Simulated assay, not measured.
Amino acid sequence: MLRFTANLSLLFTEQPLPERFQAAKKCGFAAVEIQFPYSLPVEQIGDLIDQQDLQLVLFNVDADTLLQGGEGLAAVPERRDEFKTAVEQTLAYAERLKPSVINVLPGRCLDPQRLGEYQTTFCENLAYAAAVFAKLGIKTVFEAVNSHDMLGFIVDTGDKMLDVLKQIDHPNLFMQYDIYHMSRMGEDCAGFLRQHMDRIGHIQFADSPGRGQPGTGAVDFKTLFDVIATSDYQGWVGAEYRPTVDTAASSAWLKTYAVK
């Protein structure tokens, strides 16, 4: 089964965020996701998705300056209280927007000597988030990010995600599998998806190595989308790429792969 979402943090950036909801709907998407929605009031986002008859599938717990080169919040031992405050903020948005899944970004460790401490902190914080969001019936996911784009990211392979799942062993915790990031790490994405689909709560994609739309790189999307479509996966597949042309023009793949 293939159901696609438009990630409004990377797609339709030709327009301000409030206008991207309508653009996504016009392009043929039935659902959207946002990396960090907190720049807009929750009621405004709720109204926008209601007006366009869209579903907001996913957003992330705030990660502070992670995307600007910082370590984030989820793994830093000295920032446990800030992480819990971020979870409370996410919870307030989730109560109104009712996403299917919420993502917790593991973050970086910029001091290799403290890596073990950061990994322990992340697992404790992730278990906390999984328990909090379970009360709303929302799955908690976390993702591996390639260490080429984010040096020092503490979870950067599929095997490391599996290790985290094993350590925490929480029924509301799943992997978010990003085809772009794992392709950049040289992993067999199709093989991983076939073997571990039951532990995956959300999937995202972009072509690799450039992170553009399908057809701009080396990823075999036909095979990967066939694997997803013929599996028991019931979640959404998020288009989280950087268009190399106008976003609408970049979405020709949607007509090819979307469920009719």
Rank of each mutant, 00 (worst) to 15 (best):
N125Q: 06
Q119N: 15
Y118D: 01
V141Y: 02
V101Y: 05
R114S: 09
D111Q: 11
F153H: 13
N103T: 07
E88L: 15
A86C: 14
V87W: 04
K98H: 14
V145F: 07
V101F: 00
C109T: 01
R79D: 05
V145T: 11
E124G: 06
A127R: 09
Q89I: 04
L151N: 14
M161P: 03
A134P: 03
K84D: 14
F83S: 01
G158P: 09
E143P: 00
L105Q: 10
A127T: 12
E124P: 04
G137R: 02
A127F: 15
S147K: 09
F122S: 04
E78L: 10
A86Y: 03
K84Q: 15
A129P: 00
N146S: 08
A134T: 12
G152V: 05
D159P: 01
L151E: 11
Q119K: 09
A94K: 02
F142T: 08
I102Q: 03
L110A: 11
G152E: 05
T120I: 08
F133T: 03
E95K: 15
M161Y: 06
C123I: 08
E95G: 01
P112K: 07
L110S: 02
S100M: 14
L151H: 14
L105F: 12
P106N: 10
C109Q: 04
L115P: 00
A127I: 04
T121P: 01
E143M: 02
T120W: 02
T85E: 15
K160M: 06
I138M: 01
N146D: 07
A94Y: 09
P77N: 02
F133S: 15
R108V: 03
E95H: 05
R96F: 01
K135L: 11
F153D: 05
C109H: 00
K135M: 12
T120H: 06
T120V: 09
T157S: 11
A129T: 03
V145D: 00
